[in-house]
Structure formats: C-alpha cells, structure tokens
Design a protein around this nucleic acid. Structure first.
Length: 464
RNA sequence: GGCCAUGUGGCGGAAUGGUUACGCGCCGGUCUGCAAAACCGUUUAUUCGGGUUCGAUUCCCGACGUGGCCUCCA
C-alpha cells in the first residue's frame, strides 16, 4: 500500500515519494491577515492538517516539516488599517489589524482540531536580508535580475515571463493565449502583459522597506517563494492551497523560485482543494451567506465543522448546509458515546488505506462507521481502534462528558430542574398515571429535552 | 470568449468495464403503558444523446447543467 496524491502539475494521481524520508517537507499558503477567516478558508487548513497527520503517521512525528505562512504585507491590509484606525499612524494601525486577525485565526484553527504547523513565518520578517541568512525577498529579486529573469521599469521590478520557456505549465496557460485576451491589462512598461510585479514603490504614506530599488514593498507572490526556500529548501515535497491560487499565485511562485534557484521544480506535488458553496449558492457577502469560522463556532463545536468538511473529498466542491452540519453533529454525538473515552490502541489500517488514496476522507468516514458498528455490537478491540483512529484524525479532543455538557450548557437548560421533572415522571409512571407522565414528558420536550427510558432508568439529552 | 473541474438513490457522498459502498432520511419490526433512544431489516441512483465493447454508471465524442480561473479571492 502506497500513498498516492493528485498532482495538479501532471494532472494525475502519483505515488508519493519524498525527497528525504527523514524530513518530508510541505508548504501551504496561509491567510492574508486583513479580515477574519471565513469557512472557505477553513477547508485548506483542515485538509492539509489531515495530510500533515498522515505524513507524521507514516514517516514519524519528527520527520515532517509543515510550513504555513502568514501574509501580513498586502494592500488590502493597508486599506483595512486606514478604514478601521483612521487616527493612528499607518504602521501602528497595520500592526493592530494583522495582530488581531492573526490571533483570531490561530484560535479558529485550534478549535477546528488542527495541529500547529512546524513553522508559521510572517512575510514581513522575510522582506529584507536576515541576520540568520535565511532566504529573503530582496535576495531572491536580486538573483532574478542577475540571472536575467527580471527587469526594472518605472520604479518597479518585474518578472520577465518570456524568459522562462515553460511559464504557465501549472495552470495550462500559454503566453500566446494571454496576449490576445482583451482582459489582460496591458501596461506600457511591461515587456509582456503577463509579467508581474516583484517589487513596487511605496508612497511616503504607504508601508515600505529600503531596497536597492528604492523604498517600496514586495509584490504578492514573492513572499511564499522566500519563506518556502527559507525553511524547506529550493525544492521540496508538497505545496498546497486553494484551487483559485493555481493562477496566478502558484504559477508565479514556481516561476520566481525555479528561475532564482535554477531548479527544475519548486515542489514535487502540487495539491489544490476545491471550493465551497453555501446552501447551493456561491458564498458572498451580498447574498448574506458569508460565514466566518468564528461565527460558526458560536453554534457548532469545532469538531462538527471538521467532520462536515471531511465528508467530502478535498478536490470536490463542498456544499455547506445546515442540514449537513446537523447530520455531522448527530454523528459525533454517537461517536463520542460509542468511543467512550477509550485510550491507547492503534489506528485502523482501513482508515490509513482510505487516506492513502489521495485523502479519500469519505471512504475514511465509512471505515469509521464500520468500526463504530462493530464496537457498538460489543467488539472491544474495535472500540479501542475506533477511538484511536478518531484521535489520529483530530477528533475526540475532549471527554464524552465534556462533549455532552457543552451541548447542555449551550442550551441553557437547568439540569436540576430536568432531574426533578424526571423524578416526578418516574413516580407518575410507577403509579400508572400515564396522563401525568406524558404531560411531564411534553413539558421537558418544550424545554428542548429528550428523554430516554431504559431498564437502568431514565436519561436525557438536549435535542439538536 | 479561452482554459479547468464537475453532474450517482429523497439528501450528503464513495467505488467500479459485468455482483448491494457508507451515512442521514423514509418505511417495517423488536423493545416500550404509548413514545423516544437503541437494535434488526427493507427501499430508491449513476444528466441527456451517440460511439467502442459480449457487456458502460465506469472508456471516447457531443449536448446541457453547475462551479472555478483568466493580475492580488481558500
């Protein structure tokens, strides 16, 4: 059994072979911290967390390096800073925006059950040459100019796309096609319409760094090229992100990195997650179906959001619906009850096998259902395996009791009152006063409490 | 317009050149004072039209639908 991953560059599933099994290296494009992350942003975070966990399982916990950057230099951030903190000096306002947003992102991701990446570098720390000598953006740009892949024009430094014979390979674009397209803005100072900015000048009001090309700031793509090289080397194993990043972001990252380093590949496997729709419609602020992770966490435990995401294979579109969330919540209630705080054990081979096929998480969920049914039927070995498998995937982060308490607390139901009503009902049933016992049951139901009678007595839970 | 992805039962969602995925729901049963829960069981599908093939949901072509990218959106 071998791990196979779909590679966007070759458009096929390929057996995964790491460059160095002692240090498997993965880079995933993280957030640009200008606004709270929405549920669509959560998808790559969760998907690549699962891959990270799988790689750790295969190669060992200390033999995988996962880098997820934080982009804290971007014109959207500048605009947001000006809007939200009009009185403050820009640099201070920017810091407030990026810190607040980055902190919220970290909290959100943790709630979703994701492990901390090995490193989370910030773009602003990689603009200028560093004391530790790690690759920085200015260094890369100088190298690109020296190698004849970039040129200066009107104060900008631009990447010369025509200098790279196979530019466009990832997205399947040809330079010729781009020329004819009327929608590609033609700037007089560009040698070719697809040439893109590596460095641009900043006005005195804009954030900037002093560089060989004057005071300015980096273009959009160069920060990932720098941070990836800084931590993972000039060629590494896996580069991931959302489908929309294929062009131009990843295409241009590849161009910059390969041309600066003189390599044949930036990453050996390019993975892209599909998009997310909400209730069958495109998520957009104007439609009012735009949810931040934070908002969803107010209504659902993070594990519910996580499971809901993993019910679909990562390359397929996800339709994010309340019905789906309810189903996921119900499933987790059941799984918590059946797993029953088991500890230890090994992850099920079936779970690993499903993940080996390009992270087939729906098949994985089916395998979990199988274990669950076996455990519920009394197979104690499978109960342990079931729990171990769930934990490996980032579930079962709390005790079953805590899981149930959370639901009760969220509902605001008074447990003592429920217990008192149930005692009354039990007494009524004992004297065969079923009219009264049914009335009490209705009263509890009106409070959102469902009761369950069994031979051992009556238990209750919060209706979803 | 160019390029890319996708279209499976009431719903979500896998797999596969020929034999029921799985989950939710529905329905039936056991249990129950009646229910609920639990457990057992049943049910329904491969967008359309061609082609290849002994045989296609699976491969090929076309149509239609949906989504994405085409300079800073995961």
């Amino acid at each position: 059994m071998e791990l196979r991953l779909y590679d966007t560059l070759t458009r096929e599933k390929r057996v995964f072979t790491p460059i160095d099994a002692n240090n498997v290296r993965m880079y995933v494009c993280g957030p640009t911290v200008y606004d709270f992350a929405h549920i669509g942003n959560a998808r790559p975070v969760i998907v690549f967390d699962v891959l990270f966990r799988l790689l750790r399982h295969i190669y060992g916990e200390n033999h995988v390096t996962y880098v997820r950057n934080i982009t804290d230099v971007d014109d959207k951030i500048n605009n947001r800073a000006l809007r939200d903190y009009p009185g403050l000096p820009l640099n201070e306002a920017i810091r407030k925006v990026t810190e607040k947003t980055a902190d919220q992102f970290q909290a959100d991701v943790k709630a979703l059950g994701c492990l901390l990446p090995t490193v989370q570098p910030r773009a602003t720390e990689f603009v200028l040459p560093r004391p530790d000598g790690k690759t920085d953006m200015v260094m890369l740009i100088k190298e690109l100019i020296a190698r004849g892949h970039a040129y200066e024009a009107e104060g900008e430094v631009l990447f010369d796309t025509q200098s790279m014979p196979d530019y466009g390979a990832l997205s399947g674009r040809k330079l010729e096609d781009q020329q004819a397209g009327a929608r590609v803005a033609v700037d007089a100072h560009k040698k070719h319409p697809t040439d893109f900015v590596l460095w641009k000048q900043s006005s005195p009001e804009e954030p900037g760094w002093d560089s060989p090309w004057g005071r300015g700031r980096p273009g959009w793509h160069i920060e990932c090229s720098a941070m990836a090289a800084a931590y993972l080397g000039t060629t590494f194993d896996i580069h991931g992100g959302g489908l929309d990043l294929i062009f131009p972001h990843h295409e241009n990252e590849i161009a910059q990195s390969r041309c600066a380093h003189g390599t044949h590949a930036m990453a050996n496997y390019w993975m892209h997650n599909g998009f997310l729709q909400v209730e069958g419609e495109k998520m957009s602020k104007s439609l009012g179906n735009f949810f931040t992770i934070r908002e969803l966490l107010d209504d659902w435990p993070g594990e519910v959001l996580r499971l809901n995401m993993l019910k679909t294979q990562y390359r397929s579109p996800v339709d994010w619906t309340v019905k789906g969330l309810e189903e996921s919540a119900k499933t987790l209630d059941d799984w918590y009850a059946v797993a029953a705080d088991q500890t230890g054990g090994e992850v099920s081979p079936k779970v690993i096998e499903a993940l080996y096929d390009d992270l087939n998480t729906p098949l994985l969920v089916a395998a979990l259902h199988g274990l669950r049914n076996s455990a519920a039927a009394g197979n104690e070995a499978d109960r342990v395996t079931f729990a171990a498998s769930l934990r490996m995937l980032g579930f079962l982060s709390e005790t079953a009791a805590a899981w149930n308490d959370r639901k009760q607390q969220a509902s605001g139901v008074d447990a003592a009152k429920v217990d008192a009503l149930i005692a009354e009902r039990t007494a009524a049933r004992a004297r065969k006063d079923f009219k009264e016992s049914d009335r009490l049951r209705d009263e509890l139901a009106a409070m959102g409490v469902v009761i369950k009678d069994s031979k051992e007595g009556t238990t209750w839970e919060i209706a979803r």
